[in-house]
Design a binder for these strands. Structure first.
Lengths: 317, 317
DNA sequence: TCAAAAGTGTTATCCTTACACCCATGT
DNA sequence: ACATGGGTGTAAGGATAACACTTTTGA
């Protein structure tokens, strides 16, 4: 308690009013790839980033302020939106002083990708190449693992080295249980702490394309949240067209989670959960036998306590 | 897009700097009841509320600012802390104008309850009496259901009435799937919208004790989050003493989730998950056969991908 | 005719749920 | 003796994961 009092009375160099930023992780899935909507330079000279802007007095609510900024910067109208996290700690006060600069980040899921203005849809694995396990263990992971090992061994003492090694094992699946696709943020934070990303001073891009400010941390947060949520809520359908084949649905889920699923079991799961219903139409096929087009059964939102798509330890089509 | 532009250019009565508040939902479990740490009057004349205070320039991070406020107001040192949600929308700008008043709410779990200063530990079912199903369907639920029904039937049109009835059925378990203990926030929001809580103008306290500002909404958010989280992360142990019996553990989980569990299955679940290990000690019994004291196996944090305690459709001891 | 993708059927295994029962202590 | 809570064993049912196999199209 005494300690806390002392902290609060430390003299500060600057103590002006805090600023509140709004930022959006906007996700779509097209051509079997997950996409994120980016703008070229949210801050001059810092590279690409997320649609974002300050909260203004005219914004009636945080979420409406966010929607306004996104529409202005990208022309995209948002549907499903949920709050992700409020960032106020790292990477925002590089000098350690000055007014607080908070950022309230949101996750949005949209159905179609129609880039406008100078915004662009990017494959999200551009920023996290090691998160895509659909073609097996990502090539870049070996180099990353080696650098992480070096970092953990360079710890000041044995205890810290042990803790670092434990965290690496847990986040990257060396420990029991293997790769867990939801731990996106933990992995990024490790890479950040180890100084392996340009945002933390790394000279190269071994762990993917950087973003301005802490936007990549926000993206990692959104990715992890989405990967977790598709398992217990039917949110994938926010990304699907009104009618789709089961194969398309599976490929979107695989694209989001970054792992391949077992085809037959995936189909049975979707069917017996009652998440979709058949339409009369048959798909314009892309090779092979034509598939029946399905549509999402909106009623399930009122039926089940928590419908979603579990991701079993899949593999192969 | 044009619409968004218009919104942002609306003239505002007041447009000063935003303020950022910090608030804490601090949970403990003593004597088989879940407790929340409260302060008597965070705002003069508005009744009890959560420990809270404004973010100050001297606070290095949001979380450290929160810890400082809590220690100052209650003397409680916080251990496990996680961010809950940032509230900026409702109940904070009653006039619809003026500067933004955000509040970043956190969830904290503490081991012991030692109230200090004028703060007090309260049973959280004081604020949500209808959330406690340990003795069967709560008595107050009938009256609440009747008032909610009246509200849904008083909707301006049939479509809205239908939507309200659907939401009530989903939140309160009339629809398939029955009562879902995690939907605490959805239930509180319905009661708020229906005008059944004092915070929304209700004259009586049919749905529990009110709190200042939107603190009860924060508490509902925290309760729901905790009820969900104990199922997939071993967070209950943050609330337990270093050594405990399986019976104590079960009663704490039941107190948090508000439902009774099946004794034998609960024990097997805990055992086979490897969450606890035996100690040499035997409990000072409270009646009946003495029980073995257990301790949490910290190692599981490094082993399993997502260890936790599932809550099956229990019943009885 | 073959490749590619859609779609069906079956089986072994594990986990969940439920039930029955025994053990050790205080009154 | 019996009430109370601790603790163990086991069987039924359902969901999961893995397998093989058929169907329908385009090239």
């Amino acid at each position: 308690m005494a300690k806390a009092e002392r902290v609060e009375r430390e003299p500060m160099a600057a103590a002006s009013a805090p600023t509140i930023g709004l930022a959006a992780v906007i996700i779509a899935a097209t051509q079997n790839e997950p996409r994120v909507l980016t703008v070229p330079e949210p801050v001059p000279g810092r590279g690409e980033g997320l649609p974002s802007g300050p909260l203004e007095p005219a914004h009636p609510t945080l979420e409406r302020g966010l929607r306004a900024w996104v529409e202005r910067q990208t022309g995209q109208t948002l549907g499903y939106v949920e709050q992700l996290y409020t960032f106020g700690d790292r990477n925002r006060r590089p000098d350690g002083d000055g007014p607080h600069a908070l950022s309230v980040a949101y996750l949005a899921l949209v159905r179609e990708a129609r880039p406008a203005a100078d915004s662009a849809w990017q494959n999200w694995y551009r920023y996290f190449p090691y998160e895509d396990w659909r073609s097996g263990s990502p090539a870049c992971l070996d180099a990353i693992a080696a650098r992480l090992d070096a970092w953990s061994q360079a710890a000041p003492d044995a205890g810290e080295a042990r803790r670092r090694a434990d965290r690496i094992g847990l986040a990257f699946g060396v420990a029991g249980g293997g790769w867990n696709e939801e731990r996106v943020l933990e992995r990024y934070e490790l890479l950040f702490e180890a100084g392996l990303v340009p945002e933390a001073g790394a000279p190269d891009r071994i762990a993917g394309q950087p973003m301005a400010l802490d936007h990549r941390r926000m993206l990692a947060t959104g990715l992890g949240r989405l990967r977790g949520k598709i398992k217990y809520r039917p949110v994938v359908f926010e990304l699907m067209p009104p009618a789709f084949t089961l194969g398309q649905l599976q490929r979107v889920v695989e694209a989001l989670s970054g792992v391949l699923l077992h085809k037959q079991n995936f189909r049975r799961l979707v069917a017996q959960q009652g998440l979709v219903e058949e339409t009369d139409a048959i798909s314009a096929e892309t090779g092979g036998r034509p598939a029946r087009l399905m549509r999402f059964r909106r009623e399930v939102l009122l039926e089940r306590p928590a419908p979603g798509l579990r991701l079993p330890p899949g593999r192969r089509s």
